[in-house]
Design a protein around this nucleic acid. Structure first.
Lengths: 330, 330
DNA sequence: AATAAATATGAAACTGTTTTCATATTTATT
DNA sequence: AATAAATATGAAAACAGTTTCATATTTATT
C-alpha cells in the first residue's frame, strides 16, 4: 500500500500539497494538482481511512439497527438505506437487535468509539433514557419507530391514519365485526399505540363497540397469523374481517383460513400492513396499507448526513405518506 | 472522550503499560494492572479503533457482499452471518453489489484500506482475475458462489446434485416434458453451470431429450416467473413440469398459471429452489430444494476468522448438505 | 557468588493522514 | 511605487494508539 508520502515523493511536492489535492482545498496550482493526480493514479493510491478518522473524525460509516433483517419490511428498508448511503459515499454497518437490549447497547457503543458517524434506529429495545446519552457522541435518527419526548430527528408515518383508513375501508365494505392484530401490547406507546388509536377511532366513528376477544396482541409472524386464525375458528361469535399489523400475519391468517375451507374475502376479509411483494403473491391478492419504505430509508440517510454537517440542528419530524392499496382480500 | 494518556496519567503509569493491559500482554504486575483497570473504568475509557487500525490492528469488522439484500435467500444468509459474527465479536458491513462491477470493486477496496478484516462474497460480478489481487490484503471467502480456479475457501452446495434430485423427482412423478429456468446463462461457469449439469444428467439418465424452447435463462424474480408462464401458455407443445432456480420464480409461475385457470400440479408441476418461507405460503405449497442457509452463513464466518488467525491456510472447500422437500406443487 | 534468564517498566519512534503556522510569490488597490 | 490581499507551498505538530528498544529489577542456574 502506498501512502501520501509516496505520492509526495513521486510528484516532488509536500504531503501538505498532496493532502490539499485529495481534499479539494483551494490554493493549489493547476500544474501541481495535475502532477499529484498523476502520481496518485500511477501508485494506485487510496487514502488510509483509519488515518483520516484519527485526524478528522468522520468514518463515512452509518450504523443501522433493525430488529431482524429477514423481516422483509426491514430488508427493504436496509436496501434503501444502503443504496442511498452508497451514493453519498457512506458504508452501512448492520445490527440486528433481535429483541436483545444488550446487543442494542453494544451497537450504540460504536458511536462512542467513533466506528460509525451516526446511527439509524428502526427499532428500540432499551428505554429512551438509556439511549439518550449516546446522542452526545453523534447523531441518532429514528426511522419507523419513534419516541414522543426524544429530541432527535424522526422519520415516521402517520400510523394512526394507516390503521384508520384500513379499518374504515372494512366498515365501508359492510363489516361490523372487525378483529385486530397488533405487534406490541395494546396500551404501549410508539407505533403500535398509534395504530390502536386509529383502529379505535374508526370503530367509534361508526358507532361500533370493540369486542376485546377480537384483539390479538404481540403478533408478528406468519405462524402467529395461523394461530390467530385457529383461535378465531374456535369462537362462537366470529369476526367477519380482520385488520393486521403486517402482511405476514395477514398471510398466515389467510393460509389457515383457506386450509379450513373458508373463502376470502366472503367468509372473512383480511387486510395487511406494509405492502410487501408477498401481498401480491397471496391468493386472493392482499388489500394492505402501503408504507413508503424506500422513501423512509432515503430520508433517514439524508437527515442523518445533514445532521452530521450541522450538529446544532436537533429534532425534526418527517411524516411520510401512507395509503390504502385495495386488492382482492377485502 | 478520554484517551490512553488520560488513563496513564490517572493511574500514574506510562501509556505503554496501559496499552499492555488493554491488549493483555504479559509482564505487567498485578497491582499495576488493577490500577490501570480501575482508571479505565473511572474514565469510561474505550480505545479509539481508528488509532488501533492505523497501527495495523484488526478492525473486528467483516464485509459481506450480496447481490440484493431484499432477496430472501440473501437476507437469511446475512442474518446468519451477522449473528455468528456478533457472537465472535465482529461487526458486519454490508454491500449490495447490485450487478454493479464498480460497486463490488469499491467494496473490495475496503479490504485494501483495512476497513474490514475480511470479506465474504456471496456473489461475484467482476472476473476472478480482477478480484484475486485483493486477496493480498486480507482473506476473502466465497459463500454460495464459487470459482473453479480461485485459491480461497469456498462454502458451497452441490448445486448439480440439487438440480439432479429435483428433476429426477419430476421424472419419477411421470413427467417427460420438463422446462427449466436458470439464473445465469446456460453455459456460464459457477453455480448455474452446475445446476444445468444436474438437469441434463437427470434427463439423460431417463433417456429424455432436452427441448431448447423449454429452457429459460437469466430468470430471477417473481415477475420473471410470470413472464415465463406467459411464454409457456403460448406454446403449442407445453411442458408439464418446470424446474426453477428459486422459489420466487416458482411463485411467479404458479401465480400466473392459476390466473389462467391451470391447476397445479395437475396441469403443470412446479419445483422451486431455496426453501424460503414463501414456499410454505404458496397455494399449493411448493416442492423445493432446501439450501441450508444458516449453516452456510455460520461456516463462512468461522472459516474467515480461522483464516484471519492463520493466514497461511489457503483454499478449502466446504460442501453443505442439500435436500429435496416434497410438498404439494409436484 | 557470578551469570543468565525472566519479569517489569517507560521513552521514543511509528502508523498515515489533516491542520496550523510560517513564508514566499503573485495580483489588486491606493 | 508602496501596500494590502490573494494565492501557493511546505515543515512540523497533532490525532491515539502500538511497537521497539533500552534498562532496571527479580528469579533461576551454574
Amino acid at each position: 500500500m502506498s501512502t501520501i508520502s509516496d505520492v509526495a515523493k513521486l510528484s516532488g511536492l509536500s504531503k501538505t500539497t498532496v493532502s490539499r489535492v485529495i481534499n479539494n482545498h483551494p490554493y493549489v496550482s493547476k500544474e501541481n494538482k495535475e502532477q499529484v493526480l498523476k502520481a496518485m493514479k500511477e501508485l494506485g493510491y487510496t487514502p488510509n481511512p483509519a488515518a483520516r478518522r484519527l485526524r478528522g473524525q468522520l468514518t463515512t460509516t452509518l450504523g443501522v439497527i433493525v430488529p431482524r433483517i429477514v423481516n422483509p419490511f426491514f430488508s427493504y428498508l436496509v436496501n434503501s438505506i444502503e443504496q442511498t448511503a452508497y451514493n453519498k459515499g457512506y458504508q452501512v454497518l448492520i445490527c440486528q437487535s433481535n429483541e436483545d437490549k444488550e446487543k442494542e447497547l453494544t451497537f450504540l457503543n460504536l458511536l462512542k468509539t467513533k466506528q460509525v458517524d451516526g446511527i439509524i434506529m428502526t427499532a428500540i429495545e432499551n428505554d429512551w433514557s438509556v439511549i439518550e446519552p449516546f446522542t452526545n457522541y453523534g447523531p441518532i435518527v429514528l426511522c419507523n419507530e419513534y419516541v414522543n419526548y426524544a429530541d432527535v430527528p424522526m422519520i415516521r408515518l402517520n400510523q394512526s391514519k394507516g390503521a384508520y383508513i384500513g379499518v374504515k375501508h372494512l366498515i365501508e365494505r359492510g363489516h361490523q365485526k372487525i378483529a385486530y392484530c397488533t405487534g406490541g401490547l395494546f396500551d404501549e406507546q410508539g407505533k403500535d399505540k398509534d395504530r390502536n388509536h386509529g383502529y379505535q377511532k374508526a370503530l367509534q366513528e361508526a358507532g361500533i363497540v370493540i369486542n376485546p376477544k377480537w384483539v390479538f396482541v404481540n403478533q408478528h409472524s406468519i405462524e402467529d397469523g395461523k394461530q390467530v386464525m385457529k383461535q378465531i375458528l374456535e369462537m362462537e361469535d366470529r369476526p367477519t374481517a380482520v385488520f393486521t399489523g403486517s402482511d405476514e400475519i395477514a398471510g398466515g391468517i389467510m393460509i389457515e383460513a383457506k386450509e379450513h375451507g373458508l373463502i376470502v374475502p366472503d367468509d372473512i376479509a383480511i387486510i395487511g400492513f406494509d405492502d410487501q411483494p408477498l401481498a401480491e403473491m397471496l391468493d386472493p391478492k392482499l388489500t394492505t396499507i402501503r408504507q413508503p419504505v424506500d422513501q423512509m430509508g432515503e430520508k433517514s440517510v439524508e437527515v442523518i448526513i445533514k445532521r452530521l454537517n450541522n450538529p446544532e440542528m436537533k429534532m425534526e419530524i418527517y411524516e411520510m405518506p401512507i395509503e390504502l392499496v385495495v386488492r382482492k382480500s377485502t
